[in-house]
Design a protein around this nucleic acid. Sequence first.
DNA 1: TGCATTTTATTTGTCGACAAGAAATCGACA
DNA 2: TGTCGATTTCTTGTCGACAAATAAAATGCA
Lengths: 234, 234
Amino acid sequence: MTDTGEGAYPERKRGSGVKVVYEMLRDEILDLKLPPGSPIDEVHLAERFGMSRTPIREALVRLAGEGLVETLPNRSAMVSNIDVLNLHTFYDAITLMYRVTTRLAAQYHRPADLSRIRGLQQMYAAAAAAQDALAMVAVNRDLHAAIAEAGRNPYFTTLTLRLLDEGRRILRLYYQSFDDRLPKQYVDEHEAMIAAIAARDIDLCDRLARAHADQIVRQIQQLFARDERQEIAL
Amino acid sequence: MTDTGEGAYPERKRGSGVKVVYEMLRDEILDLKLPPGSPIDEVHLAERFGMSRTPIREALVRLAGEGLVETLPNRSAMVSNIDVLNLHTFYDAITLMYRVTTRLAAQYHRPADLSRIRGLQQMYAAAAAAQDALAMVAVNRDLHAAIAEAGRNPYFTTLTLRLLDEGRRILRLYYQSFDDRLPKQYVDEHEAMIAAIAARDIDLCDRLARAHADQIVRQIQQLFARDERQEIAL
DNA sequence: TGCATTTTATTTGTCGACAAGAAATCGACA
DNA sequence: TGTCGATTTCTTGTCGACAAATAAAATGCA
């Protein structure tokens, strides 16, 4: 196997090692560069990042805490599987979190929040104009994360972030193989939600967030259904 | 300092060390034996548990992932503070999770779930009859955890568990100093909720769970208000 | 005495090494 | 040839040690 592109890490500041490994592994897991179920070898990673196993191990423990990797005693850790059978629990959770965080954003947002949200929405519109589905997925995550932050409830924010990451992984599962186009309609839905947040219209936020979530769930289900048909067609 | 009661751990199975430390520290944090803000020294813990710093460290990383300890770079970790100023975010979150998990329990529970829930409810009633407030807090946590499990949505279950633990810590903050009596009314509320779950009456579950959560929030607020008056009275 | 600076001490972050446990390989035997 | 058991290999879990970073103490100076 050729070098996977890490190169050399000649000098690191003390304490930065874990962060580097954690973020790198996290990105690779969410982008499916590390496919679900693939084993994670500590010594291999240690060689790759040019450090000892200790910081690698700490990064893995953190990732396990977020449910991105699973560990069995005395055996290799592995990237968590995507549980397609229980996707409905994901739908339920993301729908509720979209609603709650958007409502709270309407209540508690401050001017700085709105400008950040609007900046992300512009990036989202740009990605949609460029028909870049993967960029849309990534920016969509950051946009809803910003909305959740504006709601200022750390419990909901944490869960929402986890769900958004899991969603990024699920969507990636399809977009990498089918190279789809996300409907531009999402841009308008985001616009409406942001306007409702700015107007502090809580009920409207709730309705829009629910519709938005339903839309995304339907999209995933369509992809999933088509995927199943393809499998049968094979 | 006298021995804090750990004694000797002469032989451990490989891999069990982290679990022991994690659970012990977790309990001590939730019981406020380790008060919020107190520093956590790794070598001290290593001596106390009779093992090296490595498994201690892993346990601390896990606890940090759950928000029970906070770590600053190159400095001692410390037990997380209870953010009394943002308690309303806790109220919001626990109320919503009570409602959601109870609703889902009504939908998805199986016979085994119900018997487990009813067993815990009996323990709760016993604790109430004995006027043992701390036991009531502990069993209340397990009871709602069982209800959440019956709802079979791991995302909601995880958040609910985190909130229940945080609540155990908040309640302990008061019950340890005032030695209060929890109203027996909670027993009846639990009975009603369980009956609604068994009857699969989702709307009723929602209303009961909301009322139950409001009741508990009011209780905490009362304790908090009285605490403030006492401080002023001093 | 009060403040700035150097020195010491304490505590964490990282490392390399070793042993325990599990998987893989090999071999004996029916 | 297939199966069971022993052996080897491979990976993790734990350890003790060292260095970096910070906090605390001591020193010097005005």
